[in-house]
Design a binder for these strands. Sequence first.
DNA 1: AATATTAAAGATAATTTTATCCTTAATTTT
DNA 2: AAAATTAAGGATAAAATTATCTTTAATATT
Lengths: 148, 148
Amino acid sequence: MFSKSTEYALRATIFIARNSSADTKVSIQSIAEGIGAPKPFIAKILQQLSNKQNQVISSTPGPSGGFFITKEKRSKPIYIVIEAMGDSTIIENCVLGLPNCSDAAPCSMHKVYKNIRKDLLSMFKDRTIDEIAKSKDRLIPTDFSCKE
Amino acid sequence: MFSKSTEYALRATIFIARNSSADTKVSIQSIAEGIGAPKPFIAKILQQLSNKQNQVISSTPGPSGGFFITKEKRSKPIYIVIEAMGDSTIIENCVLGLPNCSDAAPCSMHKVYKNIRKDLLSMFKDRTIDEIAKSKDRLIPTDFSCKE
DNA sequence: AATATTAAAGATAATTTTATCCTTAATTTT
DNA sequence: AAAATTAAGGATAAAATTATCTTTAATATT
C-alpha cells in the first residue's frame, strides 16, 4: 500500500516509541536491526522524520545519544508519520488517479470507494502512535531460516 | 493508492467496456483521449491487459480494428485488471510491509487494518467491470482551462 | 582539552516506474 | 494483390524510488 520508505518509517516510529524514553535513546543500528531494514536507508528516513519541518521523532548526537520520541508526539496520530513521508496522497487521492474527484464531480469508482477511504483515513488519524506501540506485535519479518 | 499504470488500466478497461461492442472497437487514440493518458504509455498498458496470460481485454489489428471486451470478461470483477497489472499486492499485503503477516503472526497494525483490507478486497472482487462501467461517472480529469 | 560516539548531510549508485519512439505484423478494404 | 489502417513488439530515455557510502558536525565522557 505505502512506499517502502513509509513502511520503514512506520515500523521505525513504533519501534522508537516502544524502546525509548527520556533517558534511553535508541541508535540507528538498533533500529535497523529491530525492524529489519538496511541501516543506511533507515538512517535517511530517520533524518526525514526528525527534520525541522516534521519532528515526528527527535535525536541527539554523541555518546548515549540516538533517537527518541517526545510525550507530545506519542499522543499524535500515526498519520503524522505518513504525512512526514509525503505519502498521505496514497490514502487521500482518487482510486482512478483523477484530480478533483469529489461527490460533486465523482470518478467512476467514487461511490464504491468513498467509505473505504473514510475508514482508511480514520484508521491512521484516530489511532495514536502510543496506541499502536503498546500492542507489542511484530515489526520485523519472521526469520524462517531458524525455525525447527 | 495504485501505480499510475494500474490507474490508467482501470480507466481504460472501464472506457472500453462503455465504448465497445462486438462490432464497434475502440482505437488506442480514442482510449488515450477518453481517459486523458499519454498515447504511447497507454498502448503499452493495453498490450499488457490483452496479452496471452491476461486477456482482460481483446484486440484486432487492421482497419476498423481496435480494442474491445468480451461479454465473458465484462462480468468478471475489476480485480482482474489489478491482477493483470501485477498490483494486487497493494491491497493484499501487510500495511507495514512484513511478509507472512497473518492472524497467527500479526504485525503491529494487523488488527486495525484487517477489516479495512477485507472491505478493499471485496470492493474489487465483488464488483464486475460492467457494474462499474454503467455508472457513467468520470474517467478523465476535468478540464479547468475551459471553464467559464 | 582530547577522545570517542553518535547523528547529519551530501554525493553517488542501482533499480523500478513512467514515458516515448520506431519497426514489424496482422487485418481489412479497395 | 495492393494499399491503408491498426495493434504488437522491442529499444530507448527520463524520472522517481530505493539503497549505499563518505565526510562532517554535535555531544558526552575522560
